[in-house]
Design a protein around this nucleic acid. Structure first.
Lengths: 141, 141
DNA sequence: GATTGGATCAAGAACTATTCTAATTATTTC
DNA sequence: GAAATAATTAGAATAGTTCTTGATCCAATC
């Protein structure tokens, strides 16, 4: 009757990603983020993931998210001081925050342009990470 | 003997900026940010401002910073979930966070380029605010 | 010059996202 | 299969920030 053995690997999920052991909890967190591209917060992940893992704890969700971020499996996205959001899109991209709907849309870079073309960087700068955040509205015209 | 009457307007400070009454506390907060371009946190502002206003409270510093931000007199800058930092440079610019020194440098946009040249924005987007954050190192070569 | 009303300030409590701690449970290695 | 290692859990702790409440200040009027 019990269909949900606690820590079974799912058949469609590799044992490891980028050297990170994909435990059941990490699988579910990662699966959720690939399925729902809405940039959920840790708490939203926690609430949704309970369907699959009723006994999961919020601390575990945080642990999983951190492990996945650390191993470059997902990205952590911050808007001001709002709760962190998480995103399985690893392509370099920015985020547009629509003030009307509250939704977040990924924004791609145009091909062939680099940030150095736009910004007056100090010489000899090694950029390891870029974050671009836009805030505004999708005018409905 | 008492040279520091609590709420005196300083002679070199307007009574109002952008419609915000410049009380003594707001003056000192603003003055500090224009003098020190190091992007201090609320707590750093609090500690430094005590020289001029020994009885000021941290809550007041937060209130002042918020009022100044709201009236577009200063900008609030966030790096991930670190404490907010504040900045009196109102020109549109990004921030480069040097991982070695921990210091933050303003990064100007090259003249004549706009973000729309670089990003694949959805059509009919009205951008109200842009935030660009870079993280890396100033290689010492 | 006193009065009044609204804005501002101070002090500390409260809040919230996140991290830490310690104990339990799974998994891997020997 | 036992020992060692890693992951998970629950709840306590933390830190930055916001809220609450009462006091104070200030400008405009009487």
């Amino acid at each position: 009757m019990k269909t949900d053995t606690p820590n079974n690997h799912q058949p469609d999920m590799p044992e490891e990603i980028n050297g990170l052991r994909m435990t059941r909890q990490r699988q579910e967190v990662y699966r959720l983020l690939t399925r729902e591209r809405t940039h959920p917060t840790a708490n939203e992940v926690f609430m949704r993931i309970k369907e699959a893992l009723p006994n999961v704890s919020l601390a575990t969700v945080y642990n999983c998210l951190e492990a996945l971020v650390q191993h470059n499996v997902i990205r952590q996205v911050n808007f001001d001081r709002e709760p962190s959001r998480y995103c399985s899109n690893l392509d370099e991209h920015g985020h547009f925050h629509d003030e009307k709907t509250g939704k977040i849309h990924d924004v791609k870079f145009k091909s062939g342009v680099s940030l150095a073309d736009v910004l007056d960087l100090p010489p000899n700068t090694v950029i390891k990470d870029v974050e671009i955040t836009l805030r505004g509205q999708l005018s409905a015209s």
